[in-house]
Amino acid sequence: MTSTPSLHVNRITCTGQGLCAELLPELIDLGEWGYPILKDPAVPDQLRAHARQAVAACHRLSLHIDRGRP
């Protein structure tokens, strides 16, 4: 049995650029100050490639995805 990978935001390093929400609107909203709010940290199979792109595009390295636990 494998676990679903999940997204995490480092709120200390995030500067609220909003690119993550543009690239992954299915899982990320922006709050009133422009900082990301995860709708659901679990990344479904069909969104894993998009989640990896959003993580790679984060200029501050504030968005992370873990692999889940077996």
Rank of each mutant, 00 (worst) to 15 (best):
T2N: 13
T2D: 10
T2M: 07
S3E: 00
T4P: 08
T4L: 08
T4V: 13
T4K: 13
P5G: 01
S6A: 15
S6Y: 11
L7D: 02
L7T: 05
H8W: 13
H8P: 05
H8Y: 14
H8L: 10
H8T: 14
V9T: 08
N10G: 09
R11P: 03
R11W: 12
I12V: 14
T13A: 14
T13E: 10
T13Y: 09
T13W: 10
T13S: 15
C14M: 08
C14W: 04
T15H: 06
T15C: 00
T15L: 05
G16K: 01
G16P: 01
G16S: 03
Q17S: 12
Q17F: 08
G18H: 11
G18I: 05
G18Q: 05
G18E: 06
L19M: 01
L19Q: 08
L19C: 03
C20H: 06
E22M: 10
E22G: 13
L23C: 15
L23A: 14
L24E: 03
L24C: 01
P25K: 01
P25L: 03
P25A: 02
P25N: 02
E26N: 11
E26F: 00
E26G: 01
L27Y: 02
L27F: 03
L27K: 07
L27P: 02
I28N: 08
I28G: 04
I28L: 10
D29S: 05
L30P: 09
L30D: 04
L30R: 03
L30G: 09
E32A: 09
E32G: 05
W33V: 04
W33E: 12
W33K: 05
W33S: 07
G34Y: 15
G34L: 13
G34P: 14
G34K: 10
G34I: 12
Y35L: 09
Y35H: 07
I37N: 01
I37E: 05
L38Y: 06
L38F: 06
L38S: 11
L38T: 03
K39M: 05
K39E: 06
K39H: 05
D40P: 00
A42F: 04
A42G: 09
A42T: 08
V43T: 05
V43H: 00
V43R: 00
P44D: 09
P44R: 09
P44A: 12
D45Q: 00
Q46D: 14
L47T: 03
L47N: 01
R48Q: 15
R48L: 14
A51Y: 03
A51T: 03
A54H: 02
A54T: 00
V55H: 02
V55G: 12
A56V: 10
A57R: 08
C58T: 04
C58D: 03
H59G: 15
H59K: 15
H59A: 14
H59Q: 14
H59E: 15
R60N: 09
R60T: 06
L61I: 04
L61Y: 13
S62R: 09
S62I: 07
I65A: 11
I65V: 14
I65G: 12
I65S: 12
R67N: 14
G68T: 07
G68L: 05
G68D: 07
G68V: 04
R69W: 00
R69K: 01
P70L: 00
